[in-house]
Design a protein around this nucleic acid. Structure first.
Lengths: 250, 250
DNA sequence: GCAATTTTCAAACGGTTGTTTGAAGCATAC
DNA sequence: GTATGCTTCAAACAACCGTTTGAAAATTGC
């Protein structure tokens, strides 16, 4: 019953790690519901019952497997953010610094095979879009405080953007990040475009960063003129409800 | 055996539509693997065997259910793109027009309850990130030609962006779009932020558009100076492999 | 009206799911 | 040595999965 009594028994940690690795690889390409415990235990060369013995069940295995990566990322992010804040000595943070506090730790983990390696970014993306309630609730609950701190940091770095607008743009940003990292197509695209260039994860994030900075700084949408935000001559599809635009402009 | 002999028998279409609606709603919040046929048929008040009778199986039901929405979207998109091209009379397309050709039809479908309604955007997002091979292969195969046409259109509208860079940015754009629309959090966010504003889908896309336009037009990343793209004073985490940056700059 | 066809239905199919069981293995401590 | 507590193991559990069956019901054509 005692599940974690001797934290560093050699063989104990060994089978746990093998299960983590197997679960991680399978989760990346099949998602939570698409991965069965028998797939995991077969790949990890571990008995099926070990899942329930060590983690109490499927939910326990997958949340622990995600936490082992995300806790590290999370800590590194807030540490770096605090460091930038200390270096700034009271001056408001730059947008690039806040973004760097989110991206640089992710790149470092992606470069370190012992803490995720090249699969880390894929795991990040997959976890953010998986529909299973187990993982959604887990992520939302465990990392909400950190997210809140970054919201404040962005709000400080971009005072010209109204807070409500900013929250949306952060949401879009997380979307571009998660989808890009999760997409199976992304990695096929990498293989096709950059024939031999090796550390592609880093190049990928370095392409993504300017895209996101520009997006966060974009001019505000014009709610007063419906349709103008996209194309000037959008065919007049008369619905003509400007009321919402007016109430928003207040 | 004859599966589609009388295409508009009244009761026939009725049960098919009920199955589509049920499958759509369940897929949006649980994904392909998280939705069982028994959930679908129970919700649709239809016999379990009807799935295999009408669609040949689970794969058939879900691909048909997605196609009924996406084919409409697809057709409207290329039609609008052609219309913009005709109006331009040989002049190169504007980036806003190409984006409009992608977004306006989606907004129109989201406004029309008979062709998707407010759930349409969520379906779009979920379908793009679902890990099941069935849906990934289906989407890639059926809508690849259209995607290719939009790649060309963007390449024409943004000649100052190198094609390779552009393909990446389109990928990021699809990411922001898909994740934003798929995220369950997005819709909770809408409810929380805009207490009473009603047609929120439209407002959502109108916020997203400037974000994406700015991202597509962003200055090119500086590959020659590793680290500079994000923050000037990133702590010198000595790994010192500038070789890759040089080889890329060639 | 009858005959032919299309659609629905309850029931069962073999297979897989996550979880549980209880005995066997295996170190360590005495 | 034996006893102890942690870990592994093969086997089985009930529940659910997608799919199939064959007969009942409903609809169509005449």
């Amino acid at each position: 019953m005692a599940r974690n009594a001797s934290p560093d028994t050699r063989s104990n940690q060994d089978t746990r790690d093998r299960m983590f690795d197997a679960a991680e690889a399978l989760f990346i390409e099949r998602g939570f519901d698409g991965t069965s415990l028998r797939m995991v235990t077969t790949r990890a060369k571990v008995n099926l019952a070990a899942v329930n013995y060590h983690f109490g069940g499927k939910n326990g295995l997958f949340t622990a497997m995600i936490a082992r990566r995300f806790d590290t990322l999370n800590d590194a992010r807030v540490t770096l953010l605090d460091e930038y804040r200390r270096t700034a000595k009271g001056a408001p943070l730059a947008c690039e610094h806040v973004l760097a506090a989110m991206f640089v730790p992710a790149m470092q983990l992606a470069r370190d095979p012992r803490r995720g390696g090249r699969d880390f970014l894929r795991l990040l993306g997959r976890a953010y879009v998986d529909p299973s309630p187990t993982l959604r609730d887990f992520l939302a609950e465990r990392y909400a405080p950190t997210l809140e701190r970054f919201k404040e940091a962005f709000s400080e770095a971009l005072p010209e953007i109204p807070r409500r607008e900013l929250i949306w743009r952060l949401h879009f940003m997380m979307g571009a990040l998660a989808y890009t990292l999760a997409g199976a197509d992304t990695w096929r695209l990498i293989a096709a475009l950059s024939a031999v260039e090796t550390p592609t994860d880093e190049l990928l994030l370095r392409r993504l960063a300017p895209f996101l900075v520009a997006g966060l700084r974009a001019p505000l949408p014009d709610f007063a003129d419906p349709g103008a935000a996209l194309a000037a001559e959008e065919r007049p599809q008369r619905t003509a409800r400007n009321s919402e635009a007016r109430s928003r402009a207040a």
